[in-house]
Design a protein around this nucleic acid. Structure first.
Length: 423
RNA sequence: GGAGGAGUGCCUGAGCGGUUUAAAGGAACGGUCUUGAAAACCGUCGUGUGGGCAACUGCACCGUGAGUUCGAAUCUCACCUCCUCCGCCA
């Protein structure tokens, strides 16, 4: 959520930044509502002050044994007037809140300006793209041949975009999860979190999934609960509506969770394989930090994610998303993309975003600033470290040998318990 | 699921219809003292939202939402959460 005070004081600046995302966006409507809202509030405040003073007088007069029926009747009428204004006040408040909740974050000044993904910039490319002398296969074929994945029966017991991992496949998935968690908690200083996989609507609003993206999520019919689309939601909201001490920052948290996404609107896209599933595993990195530290913490978090690809010896590149392509709540975002030989392209395997105070304001996550002594909204940062299913796919494709076996990356061998997967 | 009890500021905790402007203590911050620190003493100290260049000031907020009343932290109702006991259960 953007700060209404910032919008009020720098409307042109905010409008200009939002237009970098999308020319349609404007804060003019919310400014109009804000003006009306403040007007009503002023009137209501004055009347409430009157009522308070007169009611206090009633108390005094009654003690003196005087008759107050006429005054009481007048105050009762005043109360009715106040009630009318308060209804208006509430209406404007909610209208303003709704508008604000639907306005995306303003992009960071350093985010490259562009209309769509074609304007994203490649920051760096790491690792050699393997040149194979033999036939390259897609991970769904490799996984099926080696009896690691069962796509058909996954569909049978659920529906399309659900897959069963079995035997060595299930073991490899688990090995990747454990490897990621171990490195982040041991080498990178993150605290491991195992959060709930169902969260309420307030949490979804806090990180920005609601109200705009309700159709992307699975919702429980009977309760106010949603399946998490990413661990970002429960983990970021852990400190919702709290005031932390500045000494407790930064907070580094790492969480493995399954993620559930309806993928509404991606019908026909990546229908084969593990790339786009309704349920997938991910290890997510989340940081809470002061505004001063957030650019540096964002870079460090992205480096933490990149290190996973480097340790796994997977070729990748880092791109910076342009203003037209960054997520709704983000102000700056890097994507890490891993090389997938079968499709001869880089595919997203991690998305590392700095949200500034946008999520913190929505979720009410503050810290007491040493400098001002006042509670201030902190900054939130998160990124995948990494998407497990896509890592699985990348390993199968990049490490497949001519005889059809798949080598296990060195760092995973002790987790997996073998050096190679053969038929 | 059933029966009781409880939710007050950063924390503990008083207040249970009317100068409450939410007591008191702790923590925190500033100061005095000290070679330095501790202790002691003095002072500052809730959040949100308006008005004002500012000093300052209005209003709201006592789990959430409705209601009663001239007036609600205080009374009523519903809901949420936590605690105790019972039942069920991996």
């Amino acid at each position: 959520m953007l700060d209404i005070k910032v919008i009020r004081e720098n409307p042109d600046k905010v409008n200009e930044l939002l237009k970098r995302r999308n020319a349609e966006l404007s804060i003019n409507e919310v400014l109009e509502i804000d003006k009306q809202r403040r007007e009503v509030q002023g009137k209501a405040d004055n009347l409430r002050a009157d009522r308070k003073n007169i009611s206090q007088q009633v108390g005094v007069l009654k003690k003196e044994g005087k008759d107050t029926t006429e005054i009481q009747e007048n105050v009762r009428k005043l109360g009715e007037e106040i009630k009318g204004l308060e209804e208006k006040e509430l209406e404007f408040n909610e209208k303003q809140k709704t508008l604000l909740l639907n306005i995306p974050n303003t992009p960071d000044e350093t985010t490259p300006v562009g209309h769509d993904e074609s304007a994203n910039t490649v920051i760096k490319t790491v690792g050699e793209v393997p040149q194979k002398s033999f036939e390259v296969k897609a991970h769904w074929d490799i996984g099926t041949e080696l009896d690691l994945l069962d796509f058909e029966r996954g569909v049978k017991i659920s529906e399309s975009r659900f897959t069963i991992y079995k035997g060595k496949g299930a073991r490899l998935e688990r090995a990747i999860i454990n490897f990621f968690l171990d490195v982040h908690t041991t080498d990178h200083g993150y605290t491991e979190i195992l959060p709930p996989y169902l969260v309420n609507s307030a949490s979804m609003r806090g990180t920005g999934q609601l109200p705009k993206f309700a159709q992307d999520m699975y919702k429980c019919e009977e309760e106010d609960l949603y399946l998490i689309p990413t661990a970002e939601v429960p983990v970021t909201n852990i400190y919702a509506n709290e005031i932390l001490n500045e000494e407790d920052l930064p907070k580094y948290m790492a969480a493995y969770t399954p993620c559930f996404r309806r993928e509404a609107g991606s019908a026909g896209k990546d229908t084969r394989g593990l790339i786009r599933q309704h349920q997938f595993n991910k290890v997510e990195l989340v940081k809470l930090c002061t505004p001063e530290d957030s650019p540096e913490e964002h870079e460090k978090l992205t480096r933490n994610a990149e290190r996973m690809l480097e340790l796994l010896e997977l070729p990748y590149r880092r791109i910076e998303l342009c203003t037209g392509d960054i997520g709704f709540s983000a102000q700056k975002c890097y994507d890490l993309e891993v090389w997938l030989p079968s499709s001869e392209c880089y595919r997203e395997i991690s998305s590392c975003s700095n949200f500034g105070d946008y999520q913190a304001r929505r979720a009410g996550i503050r810290y007491r600033s040493k400098l001002s002594g006042k509670p201030e909204f902190l900054h939130t940062i998160n990124g995948s470290g990494l998407a497990v299913g896509r890592t699985f796919a990348a390993i199968l494709e990049n490490f497949r040998q001519e005889d059809g076996s798949v080598l296990i990356p060195k760092v995973l061998q002790k987790y997996f318990g073998a050096e190679v997967i053969k038929k």
